[in-house]
Design a protein around this nucleic acid. Structure first.
Lengths: 348, 348
DNA sequence: TTGAAAGCGCTAACAG
DNA sequence: CTGTTAGCGCTTTCAA
């Protein structure tokens, strides 16, 4: 490791190039008012010394950092990854760099409080704006723009991106009802989260519209995580009058449903139709039907919105709702066909 | 959005609490030499104003930032994600926060150069140390420690973590040879990468040791990405004397092999045995056998090593080689049994 | 075209 | 226990 002692600063460069720090700074920032001879000399010194401008110091002085912050609760989740894919794509197309902030584990902190903390930390220091994913917090103190992706609780003061959860749920139910199902189970999501509530509403309303009485026994608890869904599904399948179809509130829950069905010897999709919300990469191998809310697109769109805000450009839509797509699989094969889709983009 | 005008600084807090900035700073840094009454007053003001310390300014003054940087080429890759899972876990157990730096896409930049840039940028500014994953660069200018995970080219000057690629490849080959295979195809990885080379060496040496002549027709190009492996496998399976088993250099390549086999109507594992390197979450649904090099463990260990370096604690092993595990699947079911493993930890 | 100097927000001596 | 002061490395006036 070189320069074990001291990082090379702009002063070192200035000294070596026999100019003042301000001249070096000018070159660094691409000012045109520097003699090309001087400029070349400075650049060669920079290269020779391996100088990198100090991010901290630079951020402190200038307002433009070309850096976007991303606050995600847990990178390990497939959900987060999907969104990050889209974010990554948008970042690649932009001149911004991305800085992801995570505390490694949701359990480590009092979520909402820490989200607020990190948003402030980043936006008041080194980023031009932040994207916050699945935030539990609904209010932030920041002087740079933020865009919320799939917030737990919707706050109209901030621009946000979300899926068409209600419509998607209706879609799923329409599909299952058309298949002739009358007893449809629902593995819930976390009840405090808006998207979970809207999915449940869709489930309920669809049944109601179809003139089917809601059997509360068929609505079982869940928390977007596989083990809980597994337990709930076991309970569901052990009913004396079990459902013939199950609607799982998210991908992980669908995995839990699959696990339970598999263990109890119930074959999917022959004996039990299963539909799950979210992208499930394994879905095609498990014979599950899914409704895809294009998580990656949500990330992509969020960055686009944020960049506009950073550039003080107007935002046509403060709220962006992503299209959901029902992907129907008739069997455990790899072919999947898109059944239908709804697109909804509007301004609140 | 509040405070649209100006971020609240330590000065604002000091003024509101009627103390000096240094007293606020003391409270912020948990110094004990502050009257508990004053402390409480300051804390309440901080809470009321929603103050967050400026990361940039703080980093500039103090040496300890409690922040670890991670430089990954592309977050969207399953490979990166696996490593990040382990990193995340280790971070959660530590008092450090994590900051991931990515440019969104490998193609965006001249990899090696940019890796060096980001390492310097982070380590000379706001991080206490960085982890660099799958680096193309082999030398860095930094005054804070770095740990390299799975470097393309090994540089003994830096501590690094890697899998037992050669041993793993031997293991895979032993397994396939024991199954009676004599014509075994190899879908290569990127030839400039050390791990890919070692996997190929393992393949070659195993055949040689078994007294089987190497047929260069059976070694097809790959680049760790599915489409290439797909094409190469099609080529492999179209040979007049096609292989009865294929060893894919990584998970994505294994997916490509699966895709090709599926398309050509070759059943796995009945008609074609396939083994892939890396964790493949879909493997269990596809009947693939894998050799798992515990990517997440690599991330976990890397953070442990880095934290020791940051704390100036001695490192027993500058080089950490992760155990690889051959996971054999007899059919497309969910049960998987661990075949064998090798563990190798040493110091260079 | 270049340099000197002020100051961004913060921490760490050093005085009181 | 608390305030004063001197910078950290950088950008940005303002002069020269």
């Amino acid at each position: 490791m070189k320069n074990k002692t001291h990082a090379v600063t702009i002063q070192d460069v200035a000294k070596a190039a026999k100019v003042s720090v301000s001249t070096v700074s000018r070159v660094l920032n691409g000012r045109i008012d520097v003699a090309s001879e001087t400029q070349e000399r400075i650049l060669s010194v920079i290269a020779r010394l391996g100088y990198t401008s100090n991010l901290a110091a630079r951020s402190m002085r200038s307002h433009r950092k070309n850096l976007i912050g991303l606050v995600v609760p847990d990178i390990g989740f497939p959900y987060s990854l999907e969104i990050m894919k889209g974010i990554n794509r948008a970042i690649a197309e932009s001149k911004f760099d991305l800085l992801v902030y995570t505390t490694g584990d949701i359990r480590k902190n009092g979520t909402a409080l820490h989200e607020q903390h990190y948003v402030s930390l980043l936006n008041n220091s080194i980023t031009d704006g932040v994207i916050i994913v699945a935030s539990a917090a609904s209010d932030f103190i920041t002087n740079a723009p933020i865009v919320s992706v799939d917030p737990h609780i919707v706050n109209p003061n901030y621009p946000y991106v979300q899926g068409t959860n209600y419509q998607g749920a209706l879609e799923i139910m329409r599909y299952l009802l058309e298949l002739g199902h009358r007893r449809i189970g629902f593995v819930s999501g976390r009840p405090e989260i808006a998207s979970a509530q809207r999915r449940l509403s869709g489930y309920r309303d669809a049944l109601e519209n179809a003139g089917i009485e809601i059997d509360d026994e068929l609505i079982v608890p869940g928390d977007f995580v596989q083990p809980t869904a597994y337990k709930s599904t076991c309970q569901l399948l052990s009913l004396k009058n079990p459902p013939t179809a199950i609607f799982a509130a998210n991908d992980q829950s669908a995995m839990g449903v699959f696990q339970a069905a598999d263990e109890l010897g119930v074959r999917i999709p022959e004996e039990l139709s299963v539909v799950g919300f979210d992208n499930i990469s394994e879905a095609k191998y498990m014979g599950l039907t899914t409704i895809d809310q294009s998580l990656d697109e949500m990330g992509y769109v969020a960055i686009q919105m944020l960049i506009k805000l950073i550039n003080h450009e107007p935002l046509e839509d403060t709220v962006h709702k992503m299209q959901t797509k029902l992907i129907v699989r008739t069997s455990c094969d790899k072919s999947a066909s898109i059944y239908s889709g709804t697109k909804l983009v509007g301004t609140v």
